[in-house]
Design a protein around this nucleic acid. Sequence first.
DNA 1: GGTGACACTTGCAAAATGCAAGTTCCAGTG
DNA 2: CACTGGAACTTGCATTTTGCAAGTGTCACC
Lengths: 140, 140
Amino acid sequence: MPKRRPQPSSHCPIHFALDIFGDAWSLLVVRDLMFKGKSSYGELLASDERISTNILAERLERLEAHGIIRKDVIHTAAARTRYTLTPKGAELMPMLLEIIAWSARYDAKTAAPRGFARRVRTDRDALVRELTAQLHERET
Amino acid sequence: MPKRRPQPSSHCPIHFALDIFGDAWSLLVVRDLMFKGKSSYGELLASDERISTNILAERLERLEAHGIIRKDVIHTAAARTRYTLTPKGAELMPMLLEIIAWSARYDAKTAAPRGFARRVRTDRDALVRELTAQLHERET
DNA sequence: GGTGACACTTGCAAAATGCAAGTTCCAGTG
DNA sequence: CACTGGAACTTGCATTTTGCAAGTGTCACC
């Protein structure tokens, strides 16, 4: 799992973030964990965007190494492996909400719920709290 | 300049955004235009992260095609070419601020100004207005 | 002990990236 | 008006990453 690491070429915060999730797939994985209630490898693999299995495995390893997600193996269930967001990963929510709001505005065919973008603009903090609560609920 | 396009595999807003700037370099270009006052090819090429010239050229073309930036050629100056953000591109600012805030929190050696992350959290809207004003000032 | 499900690995062709060395197009100089 | 220099790219090629398909290992349950 290389993909850069030896000495960051700058400590710019944008660069720091892109070094972790600056690719086409990482944030889709985060999205599925954060908003779609997914938690198993199989569920993540079945995304609409059809991520391929080797890429998914590599991204999960990478996100875990960066402390964005956590992998738990439960020795009593059939679906034994479970991926969840760490607090560090969950704190990407405001950023993701901004991405959603921006895309909703510029993609005429967006699948974002109607009114969601407006709510991001006018009631952000409450929205974050609400979605975070849902997230923790699901994890129980 | 291929890099996906034929039929988006979903209309998820996150996917829509990543399809445009889901790579290691695009947002660094936007950052340089938005926060660092850069506007020429040469300035963009000289970023700390050392983007290579063919990649820069391809990304500029791509960002322009997606309406994030605009390229103006002025026939009276030595540095004739000028890149600027469109309104669509400038509206990525809230997202970039969230990225900065997140990275500032998790990168111990972050170059983000002290107190910036706090201001993003407590005084976001005014901050966006202020930085947007600076952006337009520079462009005159 | 056998059989699925699930979670990955592996191998390989195709595409994207990084690097260095051009090339083109003026603006200004002499 | 030829000439030089800088700015903005292009091109060629080796390396890396991706995408796809097929294969492997490990349990839980029957």
